[in-house]
Design a protein around this nucleic acid. Structure first.
Length: 152
DNA sequence: GCCAACGTTGGC
DNA sequence: GCCAACGTTGGC
């Protein structure tokens, strides 16, 4: 049985349209330990991912991706030119991990944050809790299905 | 641009 | 180990 997740991205940086074009992308740049642990330890190939657009107009869930492979070291942590460079990380013991995500679906319309908040079935969804800033959060099957239903 | 909320860092 | 200072996220 697959797991379910929500991953945030600023569409100015990387959007569901970019993922549709690329088909598969390395989900780089996660620099929070809890989010990293979800990516590294929680995600399994085949898990479904709600792709969420933050700092956008509108903000909300824009489509679906799936986890495409094993956790790997995020290469940007070793790149001095990258804004995600981490001089304290080593190749022997990489601090930050990433996953490849494969495009599955772009919703015909964004399910907006306002709609998500108004949906009773999503009252406990981690990404919607007050103060939550994690870019990767777990989602239940019921929550995932509810969001997909709202997109139709 | 503001600001609430939270995470990280580093001095002690 | 505490906690103040600072940085980041992300909605508005």
């Amino acid at each position: 049985m697959p797991g379910y997740w929500l991953c945030k991205s600023e569409p100015d940086v990387y959007s569901i349209d970019d993922l549709r074009r690329d088909k598969v992308t390395g989900w780089e740049g996660v620099r929070n330990y809890q989010a990293r642990n979800f990516m590294r330890d929680g995600m399994q190939p085949g898990d479904r991912v709600l792709v969420y657009h933050s700092n956008a107009e509108p903000t909300g869930v824009a489509g679906i991706a799936e986890v495409a492979g094993a956790a790997k070291a995020d290469p940007t942590q070793f790149d001095p030119k990258s804004e995600y460079h981490d001089p304290k990380s080593t190749r022997e013991a990489p601090r930050w991990m990433m996953r490849e995500l494969r495009f599955v679906e772009r919703f015909a319309r964004v399910v907006t944050l306002e709609e998500l908040k108004a949906c009773k079935a999503l009252g406990a969804m981690a990404a919607l809790q007050k103060g939550n800033r994690l870019s990767v959060t777990p989602v239940t099957k019921a929550e995932f299905d509810a969001v997909v239903r709202m997109a139709k």
